[in-house]
Write a protein that binds this DNA or RNA. Structure first.
Lengths: 121, 121
DNA sequence: CCAGTAGATTGACGGATGTCGATGTGTTCA
DNA sequence: TGAACACATCGACATCCGTCAATCTACTGG
């Protein structure tokens, strides 16, 4: 029903969109329907305290990455629940998962985090 | 079940918390349970495409504020639905509402937006 | 090959959320 | 006062989400 997406000239968001982000900052231009739909899932992934703490634990981990085995106890939830939350963060593109042997290692996706950050600014 | 909140010395987040934000940036320190619970609702408010577009419409409005009457048509949802979404944004502290006569005017809460932004960085 | 372990998946449940029609509240203008 | 308007609230519905016990998958060491 909305035509705003089509009506926004491509040139309007030139350099603002060049840094691998999907959208211009809030004050720069009106967010189109498609961009909003693309952006919302990332914020949805941050909409839970457990996931915010998981992201924080991963971002502050010694070598920039954290083993799943070290994330269950601090969160205080069951292993399946923590695994579920980590999957949500991965699917939203906020963290990367790497399986090494038996263990799964997670590290933040700084590009995606910067994309969200620049949208808010 | 988690004691991490109690174990974090208050002095650890001194100047990082002074700028009206609830939490230090992601890499700075581990997010406590209370901080995570305080921060999550703001991200939850951003977890819907319609609300992202509303926030964008308000932030890009001519005088830095937008009338509710101008927000219904671009969103393409019913008036009660738009009113509901605006309430969610207000309750999350992301925008301010001001009733002037018959109209309701909304403007972004830049402090709150900066708080979220600094958390991501 | 087998036993042990890390972690992902499944199934189920209760509670939260998006949506809209109908209705309520408060303001403006005649 | 009363009609018209802007917006909020209510009630209902379908869907989504967080959580956990149980189970499955895949890797490791013997």
């Amino acid at each position: 029903m909305s035509f705003s997406e089509v009506l926004v000239p491509a040139a309007k968001t030139r350099s603002l969109v060049a840094d691998a982000s999907c959208c211009a900052p809030l004050q720069a231009s009106v967010l189109g329907e498609a961009s909003a739909t693309a952006l919302a899932p990332a914020f949805a992934a941050l909409a839970d305290p457990a996931r915010l703490r998981l992201l924080s634990l991963i971002a502050t981990a010694p070598a920039g990455e954290a083993c799943a085995c070290d994330l269950i106890e601090p969160i205080g939830k069951s292993q399946p629940t923590v695994s579920h939350h980590l999957k949500v963060l991965v699917d939203a593109g906020l963290i990367h998962r790497e399986k090494r042997g038996v263990w799964a290692w997670y590290r933040p996706n700084t590009d995606k985090l910067n994309e969200l950050r620049s949208f808010l600014g």
